[in-house]
Amino acid sequence: MTSRVEATLDACRDEGRAALIGYLPVGFPSLDESIEAAIALVENGADIVELGLPYSDPVMDGLVIQEATQTALANGFRLKDAFSAVRAITERVSAPILVMTYWNPVVQYGVERFAADLAAAGGAGLITPDLIPDEAAEWIAASDKHDLDRVFLAAPSSTPQRLATAVERSRGFVYAVSTMGITGERADVDAAAHGLVERLREAGAQHVGVGIGISTSDQVREVQSYAEGAIVGSVLVKALSDGGVPAVAALASRLSGQRANVEPGLA
């Protein structure tokens, strides 16, 4: 069984480039618009979509993503909507969809049932910001069974042993947290990011995505020079919030370096 995310990252590497991974929350500003925005993201050069599940207590997220996900919840977002969104996106574009979720919604849905339904909807796997490999036995078993990717986080503060564990237990890529902090734009990519990726290489990592605080084309290029993927989130959410789907399309095309591909009706 091959990881679809790893296959995508390898294909990018064969083209002599690194991947652009774009985050957007499902259900914001509405379920339909979040689906259209994710599709626009892919059509404008994102290689992988990170689809965020709105959660009441998002401790890794800064204000932009907090406000968007709280809006989605206030608008009545339900977990089942995430599966229909994944299905709707994968029917129209082929980029792998990783769902980013805090752990309690998965626990309440049932870890095995969540994995089965995500796989059935065409999802590629999960990014779990508050589930460390040490606590993840049930998810590791379920993701193995359903051939799903599981992306654990690595931080600048992680010990070599913990990095080795993150590399060993992750499938798809390891999410290198660029800086000690939460999601949101920053003026510069923390120098810690490059060092962390090198330490992950020493721990055996073949695929690393770098995220947190990456928002400009220059920052994307910088990260892509040493990692397999650059993860962009808050600035895309802000674009969606301010300018709707066309703004996401335009920004994704700038970040990916691909010519804008905006449906005439949306432009």
Binding site: V59, M60, W103, P129, D130, L131, I132, D134, E135, F152, L153, A154, A155, P156, S157, S158, T159, R162, A166, V177, M180, G181
Partner: peptide, 15 residues
């Protein structure tokens, strides 16, 4: 119980 927190905090919790 357990530790369901971002990896960034694990080093501090261990310390």
């Amino acid at each position: 119980g357990g530790r369901f927190v971002p990896e960034s905090l694990i080093a501090a919790l261990d310390e």
